[in-house]
Nucleic acid binder design. Structure first.
Lengths: 351, 351
DNA sequence: CTGTTAGCGCATTCAA
DNA sequence: TTGAATGCGCTAACAG
C-alpha cells in the first residue's frame, strides 16, 4: 500500500483529501462526488467512473465528523457494561464489535463500574457524541428508569434483562428454562438431594434461576429441600462460603447447582478441601460456560450463555431502532441455550 | 434528573439543544457561550454565571461532531487488539477506558483477530473516523511496517512491544527481568531441575522469557538443561502437550515454568492425570496473573502482568503524541513487575 | 470583555 | 444528469 498521495503532499506535514479536492481534480462539483460516494441520486456512467478513479488515486476517505454533523447521526454503537475486563462482558463486547464492524459501524466502550449514575451518565455522554445506537447492560437502574430512558433514546437496547413494557428493545436470555434443564440432567443421573448455591444479589438473574430450579423440580415430580439452598457473592469466595455453609448444615446432598461457573469452582475447591470427592461423591454444575470450566479439575458441566450471539443481535437491533426502522412493538428477543456436559456431573451410584 | 428540557420541547420528538439556543436564551452570542464552555478567552463573571445557569437549565451538551469538524480532531482513542474477549485484552481495554474517560475521551474498540491486514485496516478506519490517538497491540506487523505507520500516524502507540527506532511510542514490559525473577524464586526454594514450557510462537515474548530464564540460571550459577525445554501452543492444550512431552522424555524435573497461566493450568492437569503431585512433587509457575490462577487447585504462583496500568499510561501517551506534545525522542516506557506467590510453588524436599 | 464573520467537510435542496 | 447554494453546530479571527 502506498503511503503517499499522488500530487497532494505538502512540504509540511500531510494534508487530508477532501471532497472538494476530488471534485476539483475530477472536474466535477462536490455534489456529484457526494452522489457517487453514497450511491444516491443519478450520475452518468462515464462521470461516475472518472470520479471513482480519482477517489482511488487520491485515497479519499469521507470525513466522518462532517458526515455526522450533517446527517445528524454517527456510525458508532455504544456499549455500556459494568466492567469490560470481566470475561462475560468481554465476550459481549467481542460479539458487539464483530456485528458493528459488519455494518460499517464502530464500537464505543463505556464501563459503568456498577454505579447507577454512571449508567445514565454514560448514555448521555454517548448521546452527546452523536451515538444514537446504544447497548446497555444495566444492573442498577429500575424498570421505570429504563422505560423513561428508552423514550428519550430511541436507539437504546437493553441486553440481558426483560422489561415487558419495552419488550421490543430487550435482548435477553431464558434463565428459567435453562436452569430447569440442569435439574433435568441431574435427575436423569439419579440425583435428588440437590443443593443450590445462589447469588445474594436478589435481583433478576439469581431469582429467575432459582425459579428455574423450582420449576425443574416440579416437572420432575421432586420436592426441593429448602435446607439445601445457600447464598453468597457471585464469585470464587462466594462459592467457597456456600459449600462451607452446606457442609455445616449437615443435610446430605449429592449435587450442587451453582449460580455461575466462578461459584462452581469455589464450591468444588471447598468440597475437595473438606475431603469430598468431586464428582464421585458430589456433582457440581456451573452457569455461563466461561474459560474456567475447562481449566478446572474436574472440568465443569455448565450452561452455555450465548452472550456473544446476543450482543451481535443487539447491535443490529440498536442500529435499526435508531434508524426508526419499523420494529414490531409486540415482539421481543429471547435467546435460549443448552447444557454442555463435562466431567463434574456423574451418575449417582446405586446405593 | 429531569427528562424534559425547560421550554424547548417540541410536539413531535425531541429537539437537541444547540449553542445557539443557549446564546439566545442567555442573551449573548454563540461565541461567548463557546468561550465559557471551553474556558478559553475572557468572559465577564456575571456573564459567565448567567450562561452557565442557562446551560444547566437547558441541559446543553456540545455536539461532538461539530467540534471535531472544526478542531480537526476527535476525542476518541482507538484500541486495536487481537480479541477483546480474551482476559488479557479485556484488562487492557479496561485500563484504556478508565484513562480515556478520565480526560474526556471515549474508547473505540477494534478486534484485529490476529490478521496482519486487519491491523492496518483498523488503523486506517480509525484514522478515517478522525481518531488520531491509537493504541495498537500488534502481533504480526514487522518492525519496519510499524515504523512506517508511526511516521504517518503521529498519535500511534505500540503496546507490549519494543522497537528501538520508535522507542518513545512503545509501552512495554520487561519480560526478561520478570522471568529471571521466577528462576530466582525457584532456586531459592532449592529447585535446579527446572523445565520450561514455552510457546511455539517464536516471536518476541516467548523468546524474551526464554532469555530471562537463561539469564536467571546464569545469575544463579546454574546450567539450564535444554532437554527440559518443551514448546507448544500458548493455551490449555499446549500446556498439556508440554507436560506429556516432558514426562515422555524421562528427564527428571522438580519445577515447570510455563509461558503463561493457561499453559500452567494445562501442565498441572496433565501432571496430575499422570500421577504427579502438584506442588509436592513438581512446582509450577505461570505468567500474567489471570483469574485462573486463583481458580486452580493448587492456586498458581505467577508474575503479575500490569497490562491495565500499562494501558492507562498508553492512552495518555497516545493523546499527548497526537497533540504534538513534545515527547523526548530518547525516552521509552518500560514497565516491570514482581511475583505473586501462591500455592503451586513449594520448597523442594531435602533428599 | 463581547459580538460579527467566516469556514471546517459534507449532503441536500433547488435550478438548470 | 449536473451544479450552485445553503446550512448542520461549532470555534477562531478579527473588530469593536
Amino acid at each position: 500500500m502506498a503511503f503517499t498521495i499522488a500530487g497532494l503532499n505538502e512540504s509540511e506535514g500531510f494534508r487530508v483529501v477532501t471532497i472538494n479536492d476530488v471534485a476539483r481534480v475530477a472536474g466535477v462539483s462536490p455534489a456529484t462526488v457526494s452522489r457517487v460516494v453514497n450511491g444516491k441520486g443519478k450520475v452518468g456512467d462515464a462521470c461516475r467512473a472518472r470520479v471513482q478513479k480519482i477517489i482511488q488515486e487520491l485515497g479519499y476517505k469521507p470525513n466522518v465528523s462532517a458526515q455526522s454533523l450533517v446527517n445528524r447521526h454517527t456510525t458508532n454503537v455504544g456499549l455500556i457494561t459494568p466492567k469490560i475486563s470481566m470475561e462475560f462482558f468481554g465476550n459481549l463486547a467481542a460479539g458487539a464489535e464483530v456485528s458493528a464492524r459488519d455494518v460499517g459501524y464502530s464500537l464505543l466502550i463505556c464501563n459503568s463500574l456498577y454505579e447507577e449514575e454512571s449508567e445514565i451518565a454514560a448514555i448521555e455522554s454517548l448521546h452527546a457524541k452523536g451515538c444514537e445506537s446504544i447497548i446497555l447492560h444495566s444492573d442498577y437502574l429500575t424498570d421505570k428508569q429504563l422505560i423513561e430512558l428508552s423514550e428519550r433514546y430511541k436507539g437504546l437496547v437493553i441486553i440481558n434483562r426483560y422489561i415487558p413494557k419495552i419488550a421490543s428493545r430487550c435482548v435477553w436470555f431464558d434463565n428459567v428454562a435453562s436452569t430447569a434443564q440442569i435439574v433435568d440432567l441431574l435427575a436423569s443421573k439419579g440425583h435428588e438431594a440437590i443443593a443450590v448455591a445462589t447469588s445474594i444479589y436478589q435481583n433478576r438473574d439469581p431469582q429467575q434461576r432459582l425459579l428455574g430450579v423450582r420449576q425443574g423440580f416440579m416437572m420432575q415430580g421432586l420436592t426441593f429441600n429448602d435446607n439445601l439452598l445457600v447464598e453468597s457473592t457471585a464469585n470464587l469466595e462466594g462459592g467457597k462460603a456456600c459449600a462451607q455453609e452446606l457442609i455445616q448444615r449437615g443435610e446430605p446432598f449429592t449435587a450442587v447447582i451453582a449460580y455461575n461457573d466462578l461459584m462452581a469452582v469455589g464450591v468444588i475447591h471447598e468440597l475437595v478441601k473438606n475431603g469430598y470427592k468431586v464428582p464421585e461423591q458430589v456433582s457440581v454444575v456451573g452457569f455461563d460456560d466461561s474459560a474456567m470450566c475447562r481449566a478446572c479439575i474436574p472440568t465443569i458441566t455448565t450452561i452455555k450463555y450465548p452472550i456473544e450471539e446476543m450482543a451481535e443481535y443487539a447491535v443490529k437491533l440498536a442500529i435499526d431502532l435508531a434508524k426508526d426502522a419499523a420494529t414490531p412493538e409486540n415482539k421481543t428477543h429471547l435467546f435460549t441455550s443448552s447444557m454442555i456436559e463435562r466431567e463434574s456431573v456423574v451418575e449417582i451410584p446405586h446405593s
